[in-house]
Design a protein around this nucleic acid. Structure first.
Lengths: 229, 229
DNA sequence: TATAATAAATGTAAAAAATACATTTATTAT
DNA sequence: ATAATAAATGTATTTTTTACATTTATTATA
């Protein structure tokens, strides 16, 4: 790649800020331990150059699949990072994309194979270039978006309990919520369906599982419904 | 420029979706009547290639100044448009930026000189490439942003009346609001200051002028205040 | 088989915010 | 003095938000 460096030419990259919500009820960020130059042995987000024959969105789907095996993931454009001197090697603009994924064991294994790791958002290490800025900007964006879109569901398994959902909101908002009021509010949206099944991993009583009602959500969303918790 | 076309090379462009709010209380979009190829005589947004030595944001500031004479304008990145075939001439990705400006006579004159014109957002003509998509996407974004940030003020003169502000909100939301409730709500934010001056252009009684309190707004904004009207 | 332990689930009263709605007021032009 | 005009104002009702403590279902163990 070094042979092709050209500082009079724009390179276009994508960097993916991938968030997961682990069983320990903490928001996690996926970071990559670079095995090759440039920035060998440093930590970075997962990224790639955009190929001339693909869109930015294609490129981000491609690398997300490569690192997590996942397709059909919630991924949105954050913003473009384009300072002239942001990358010492190239004149490169990067389009950052944030993604929310459901972490499971398969993904954990694949991620490890790829030399990536999860780190807690309260304790993010130094990353290369402007990647820390990208992470901070996405955290703000997610907090904002959560206020009018129930994106939290993207981070949970298909079946989840209300206490888990609350823990996720608490992680995003970084504050405690009242369980009675939280439950009331979430149920009032009418977009989760109670299942005839309990998750007993966290208590003897067990907590009922729910699933997200995509259909109802879409209808409400289109009518401008406000999902603020 | 044609001489330099290279389909194996990324070009980076910015396109600015510039909104104004005119005396007739209608939201307007600034469009440009192209005098040169490509797309001579077609209508387009105001845009430019990003130079190798400038950031995307520098480029958008540069062209906004060129077309309106304005600096320090509210301008935010909308998103990147990067379909492989979006521009038949180049492999070009465009970073769209939306801007909100205060229209006045000086600007109107300059804009005309540059071959640009204002058109009502209810009646936007066919624009080149994917520019109509950009406009639609920004309108949605502005409506969304207005719900938690009082960006409306960016579109009004420094001194404005409450009825004018209401008309602006009505234009953005595309629905009528109750004048008593609107006034109550806006004043409850505590971010506008009543002046000892009236605007008598629209009534015999005259309406008091107000100005925006940037300081107070910043404090509230940082504490996560919700400015939804 | 009774009991202890655990987290899940539930209800209500009080306060705050949103809504719906009609009249008075200040000013200018006639 | 009067008519005309848009600006400004208040209140009662409904809805939403908030604060807060007890009961329930289940499992493990004594």
């Amino acid at each position: 790649m070094d042979l092709y460096r050209d500082k009079d030419k724009f390179y276009v990259a994508v960097d993916c800020i991938i968030f997961g919500f682990d069983d320990d009820e903490k928001l996690k960020l996926l970071v990559f331990n670079r095995k090759i130059d440039p920035f060998k042995k440093s930590l970075s987000l997962i990224g790639s150059f955009v190929q001339i024959g693909e869109s930015v969105s294609d490129a981000s789907i491609r690398i997300l699949k490569e690192f997590t095996g996942l397709q059909n993931v919630y991924m949105k454009e954050l913003k473009t990072y384009s300072s002239v001197d942001r990358d010492p090697g190239y004149r490169c603009i990067s389009v950052a994309q944030y993604a929310l994924i459901r972490v499971n064991d398969t993904i954990k294994t694949l991620v490890n194979q790829k030399g990536a790791q999860w780190c807690e958002i309260e304790d993010i290490p130094k990353l290369i270039l402007d990647h820390n800025e990208m992470v901070n900007d996405s955290l703000k964006r997610i907090e904002q978006i959560t206020k009018f879109k129930p994106i939290g569901f993207e981070l949970l398994p298909k079946k989840f309990t209300i206490p888990k959902l609350q823990a996720l909101y608490e992680a995003i908002y970084r504050r405690k919520l009242d369980p009675r009021n939280f439950r009331k509010k979430i149920l009032s949206f009418g977009v989760i369906i109670k299942l005839d099944e309990k998750d007993k991993t966290t208590s003897k009583k067990g907590a009922f599982l729910y699933k997200f009602d995509h259909k109802k959500y879409t209808i409400l969303q289109e009518s401008g419904y406000n999902f603020e918790v």
